[in-house]
């Protein structure tokens, strides 16, 4: 039997943004690439996202946002992760995010921001690269 489990990623949509085609596309692509993907659905609060991520002990969170509220909602998610002492969870973001906002989002701890037009292969290899070498979830607790 396998001694390791597949990496787990939570994909969520925060805020008042009902467009989830992109998020669902990524969910399916990640599943096909061998990840266990927890999908939260649309219109979630940062609190819901972080609570779910911690309880599910995910390796990464991918936030999708197309409404323009990223400068309000993304910092909140990063802040809550800190409060939960869960900064080991890797953050990614995707959506219609203007180039000028990206440095700020990255400074919050987001490892990559994927904007429209980025090829899927690039997204997958970036995520794989960021998660490679991370030890499996529970190993460290005993």
């Amino acid at each position: 039997m396998d001694t390791s489990r597949p990496k787990r990623i939570l994909i969520g949509k925060v805020g008042l943004d009902g467009h989830d085609r992109g998020a669902k596309f990524i969910v399916q692509a990640l599943r096909n690439a061998g990840y266990e993907v927890i999908y939260t659905g649309i219109r979630r609060t940062p609190e819901q996202i972080v609570r779910a991520a911690v309880d599910e002990d995910v390796d990464a969170i991918g936030l999708s946002l197309l409404s323009g509220a990223h400068n309000e909602l993304f910092p909140r998610v990063a802040e809550l992760l800190q409060e939960e002492d869960a900064e080991n969870i890797v953050l990614f973001a995707g959506g219609t995010i203007p180039d000028k906002d990206i440095p700020h989002i990255e400074s919050l701890g987001f490892r990559k921001v994927f904007t429209p037009g980025v090829p899927l292969a690039e997204i997958l290899s970036a995520i794989e690269g960021e998660l490679a070498g991370r030890s499996d979830g529970g190993g460290a607790i005993v």
Binding site: P6, V27, Q28, L30, R31, N32, A33, G34, Y35, E36, V37, I38, Y39, T40, G41, R44, T45, E47, Q48, R51, A52, D55, E56
Partner: peptide, 29 residues
């Protein structure tokens, strides 16, 4: 689990998110 990729889409939470911040509920996929 997908028999082809070993990946999985764990989507049951989508319908239970209203309880996601209730500390007296613990959901695991």
């Amino acid at each position: 689990t997908s028999p082809l990729s070993d990946g999985a889409l764990l989507g049951d939470r989508v319908r239970m998110m209203q309880h996601a911040v209730d500390l007296d509920v613990f959901i695991r996929s």
